[in-house]
Design a protein around this nucleic acid. Structure first.
Lengths: 332, 332
DNA sequence: TTGAAAGCGCTAACAT
DNA sequence: ATGTTAGCGCTTTCAA
């Protein structure tokens, strides 16, 4: 059996409190410190975080709920958050809810039972009643990518509308009038924001909205390819296109190659996310990129702040981050 | 404060043991069952898994250590494993160690302190001494994708050598003699296995190995593109190529487009993993695919079996899974 | 079937 | 600085 502090106490002849104090960075006489360290070494003692958690009512675990681990945007953020939390001693319990609201709610329950100290969630559902459980329990909740009405918590968002508008304005600025868009599913909030950005840009330029110029894809590679095909079929004169997520960007590029359309000669192109792919493409793609590292950084920062007494009472924050634009050779 | 079983006991007038028994599926008189359920409902009682874990010495948590969450092969497996474990009541603690052996060891420590019941690991290092800690503690360890000498535990592997040999043989079977390969880094064990598969196939066909025909990439998109370029430069007569991971497959395809090489007319092509990308490509790519779902299934199955008393003593297993070949239009 | 009591390994008051 | 003690919320003998 693994050694406990009792064993250390016995071995050293010291009291439990002294050992505990040592373990938690308290003051211990030099000579005792040495004794304790020897005993720890000898007995291979390791703190039992479970017992500690029971006592302190802190598990040093953070729950993370995401729609799809299998999605580069999510994965990049999670990787970073997990890393940072771990370096602060927090373990990360990840639940992938497959973009399913029911599963999402189950995951919230699951994590609550496990008494995680806080919850980070990229919500699939537009409802978030079940999050109140955490909030009532005084446990911090940080939302990523999407705000939920009526839930009092911190949020880290991206300016999706601005990003899309900016991208489209670049195309308009290059003289294009027939600018197409491959949009995402209506149910996805951020997809709608990007669509609105497109509309705004066209509106501001005084170009009446032509619904033929917008095709919705399902955020997959194949969906992007299909949408591209449809877009070209409907709009023979379209001279530029904006694609609004990574997977569809890849699909669209594949379809463009298939159709033998030359970028940027025949078609100017702005894609989304994944710098690597953009750089590796021929010609290099101009893309909108979301600041995944910054998102992750802000999320952990907020979470850690709330977890410390000091931060708990401060007013909730909503951070809205700017996207970047990576210039390639795909717009002319 | 959250309700405890004491509160339930008080409310119902029953003893702690009865409540506990109810909670754990024991026999409770119908009439008491109802009383308990009412009390639970009323007080919003939820079992504290931490306390339970302290008592039972089981945390119902499984640690997972992977080299890179940001890698589609890992992400697919993890998603599936997490899902299955959760449906069996196990939480998953994921640690991404960035393909760094030092970080990997830290993660093992971290998870051990947290008293996870078992460990699933896709090892970065070739050494695994630190895993013995788990094994000594009687906690099951399951290795994915890579075996480690001297570590007594279950393994779920993929027949990488066979997969590569098979792919290359298909190219040879189609009449190609100058078959190139984009291989992975030497340090990566599975990359070497794939390289050996290539060598075997060539050898068996009686074709002397030409080192010009093998270029190593670093498993990234850009690395794949660069390797492809180099391969073509070195071997103007090469008529077929085998690329040995997903990211490099994508890069190679991009470069092929750039160079204006026509697949399969000028170059036959077999890639690796990611069916979606293969399907979306033009022409559809023939690829080797790893059975991520099956890997995940076997891993969870092994883990769950070991976690039950019954399975703990059985002899350790090494499962070697076959890859599949998805026929596209890229070989002729 | 149910209750009483002990104890998992730790922390935190409190006393010294 | 250190020891004593109680108790976190649960499970698990043992008796009844």
């Amino acid at each position: 059996m693994a050694a406990t502090i009792k064993d250390i106490a016995k071995k050293t002849g010291l009291g439990l409190a002294t050992i505990s104090s040592y373990l938690n960075g308290g003051n211990v006489r030099e000579q005792n410190r040495i004794k304790i360290e020897e005993a720890i070494e000898e007995l291979h003692f390791e703190v039992n975080e479970v017992a500690r958690g029971l006592k302190t009512n802190k598990t040093k675990m953070i729950g993370i709920i995401i729609p799809e681990l299998n999605n580069i945007f999510c994965a990049e953020i999670i990787t970073e958050v997990e890393d940072q939390l771990r370096s602060h001693g927090y373990a990360t319990l990840i639940c992938d809810c497959r973009t399913d609201e029911r599963r999402e709610e189950e995951a919230v329950e699951f994590l609550f039972h496990r008494r995680v100290d806080g919850l980070i969630i990229m919500p699939s559902g537009k409802q978030g009643k079940y999050l109140n459980k955490f909030i009532r329990a005084g446990k911090p909740v940080v939302l990523i990518d999407r705000k939920i009405k009526g839930i009092e918590c911190d949020c880290v968002l991206v300016d999706n509308e601005g990003a899309a508008r900016d991208a489209v304005e670049r195309l308009l600025g290059a003289g294009h009038r027939e600018v197409g868009m491959i949009a995402g599913p209506e149910e996805i909030y951020t997809a709608e924001e990007r669509y609105h950005g497109y509309c705004k840009a066209m509106e501001n330029a005084g170009i009446p909205l032509d619904e033929n110029l917008v095709v919705r894809g399902d955020y997959t590679i194949e969906g992007g390819a299909a949408a591209m095909k449809e877009l070209v079929r409907r709009n023979p004169d379209m001279s530029a296109v904006f694609v609004s997520n990574y997977e569809m960007t890849m699909g669209a590029i594949i379809e463009v190659n298939e159709l033998g359309i030359e970028i940027p000669g025949q078609l100017s192109f702005i894609g989304f996310d994944n710098v690597e792919f953009a750089k590796a493409s021929i010609p290099k793609l101009s893309i909108v990129t979301q600041p995944t590292e910054e998102i992750a950084g802000r999320v952990t920062e907020l979470m850690l702040r709330r977890l410390e007494k000091a931060g708990a009472e401060e007013e909730k924050e909503t951070v809205k981050l700017k996207t970047s634009f990576v210039e390639g050779k795909s717009v002319v």
